[in-house]
Amino acid sequence: MRPASFEYHRATSLEHALELLGEFGENGRPIAGGQSLVPMMNFRLARPGHLVDINRLPLDAIEIAGPVLRIGALTRHIAYFDNPWIARHFPAFLDAVHYIGHPTIRRNGSIGGSISHADPTAELPAISVLYDADIVARSVTGERRIKAQEFFLSAYVTALEPGEMVVAVEFPIPPAASTGSFIELGERSGDFATASIGISLEHGGGKIVRAAMVCCGADLFPMRAPEVEDFLVGKPLVNPSGAEAGCIFAASIDPVDDHIASADYRRGLIAELTHRAIEAACTRALDKS
């Protein structure tokens, strides 16, 4: 298939892009790497009347800004592999990048695009929910920060308003004694995930003192697991009861039943991935100390 007709506009500055998006409203979409938007357009599942090309804007910085790591919307996924801050502070993030599409997609796709597209099993939306990131959105009327947990409303549905564009994602930097991991299973390498689990843990004295967990594949958006997070607090890194945590979580979810996997299979898979992700995060912390 080929896309329906649209008008193409190349933004020459962020202000220019926002003016155009403000003018076109729901009929306009920014385009960065196009790795998700263009397939949707080729299938005619998306038919924007106007595309605003933001690729030549300087929005690809990864920088420490006080207590957060600020990642510009146009940062390509490949940039995380050799970024020292990602490796040092966000181990689950770095794990997750390995599961994003394949090398060509990772060279071209951007974080702003992935977040705005909001595929229910995409890695960067999950990671932003895991780490309590703020999505920084801007429009002609100003800038606002939206908590990742309040940003993803359903499959491909976000809290972005017409005319708004993601300009950055800000990740609060965890304390030094923290660890994490991300595990995903799909039908084949680089394909959409059947399910994935991300874990981020703070620890002290050999025990978990704070836990965060995100799951894709259990609902139409990346969901946190507050019951498991509470359960993990106080558990030792050496034997964190990951299997039990997996069972607790699996009992609380109601995953979809479709041609990829039955609901029962998904529940079992999610329990096992939860177990493995917790073990992997704890092992990583123990190896480091």
Partner: peptide
Amino acid sequence: TVHLDETPRLSCLTFAAQ
């Protein structure tokens, strides 16, 4: 797959206008 400014790129996900 082609090379766009020396980087592999899927030409089916790229508009020529870009």
